[in-house]
Design a binder for these strands. Structure first.
Lengths: 150, 150
DNA sequence: CTGGGTGCAAAGTGTTTGCACGTTG
DNA sequence: CAACGTGCAAACACTTTGCACCCAG
């Protein structure tokens, strides 16, 4: 089962399951991190996500350390993935789609997602040629976007 | 002109030229960084490169700050490229080959290089579809290598 | 009620920068 | 000899961790 186009409740159940398996507890803070990731399909830096949570759920008083801890936890559980853009630092996003990659504009920083079955296939083939068991991959195209070219 | 399979002297000349254009000076430290990169076709962390230089050219007493400064300079001049592996930090390598990508073993950290014309072509096509002007890309396959699979 | 979770602040990383001195062109 | 480069240490930015208290199960 992939988590493509998964509804929030399903995602939440999955999270609870992962927590249970690892003898971890389900807390308001952890839920808020997941919910915020779900409601904003962006590519968050931990800082950015932290500020957004602080703004929306100020009363919970979630600390940035918890955001980091939860992101690492979710990444471990493969429910979020992280990507590193140039020197802009690590960014996280919900793993709601399998295998999608990124195109990053060097001028404005805009991020476009894309997916290509042909490339996926070639990657598998290349890995096989090298006796390599592929688990996942990272692909980023850098350049100048439509808008900035003008 | 690409710098594929370039000999060291040619590479050095290119470096000197870049320096001259930018009104920068050619120093022993800068040469040693370039030479060490050339002599070891590895994927260096700045730290790793620094230690190697310290070991080989101890009398020059090169500081790690200079290694960072020179790497950034060389990257700016597109004579080295950098890649970011998971949480292992940024690594640099001489840009002696165009467009080669990496396969990284999650178990032992081994890095294998590969190149695939078909993927390169698809990348161009995808960028075009999105009205995106491609300057370069980053592709990393993660998995388990031949040796570690045993 | 027990063990993991949290916020906070302190400690770690990896990288950059200010400064006085050294070297290049 | 002017301007840039260097080593050193301090400063930075980002991330992790120790601790005392808190809360889920």
């Amino acid at each position: 089962m992939t988590i493509e186009n998964m509804e929030y409740d399903t995602l939440l159940d999955r999270f609870k399951e992962v927590l249970k398996i690892n003898n971890l507890k389900f807390t308001k803070q952890r839920e808020v991190v997941l919910k915020t990731l779900y409601n904003h399909h962006e590519h968050f830096t931990p800082e950015h996500l932290y500020l957004l949570i602080k703004d929306k759920y100020g009363s919970l008083n979630v600390g940035i350390a918890t955001v980091y801890r939860t992101l690492n936890l979710l990444e471990e559980a493969e429910m979020v993935t992280s990507i590193t853009f140039g020197s802009q630092g690590k960014r996280f996003e919900l793993a709601t789609k399998p295998h999608h990659d990124h195109m990053i504009c060097r001028s404005c920083g805009a991020i476009t997602e894309f997916e290509d079955a042909l490339i996926e296939k070639r990657q598998e083939a290349i890995a096989k040629e090298h006796g390599f068991k592929l688990t996942n991959h990272l692909m980023q195209l850098y350049g100048v976007c439509k808008t900035c070219k003008k």
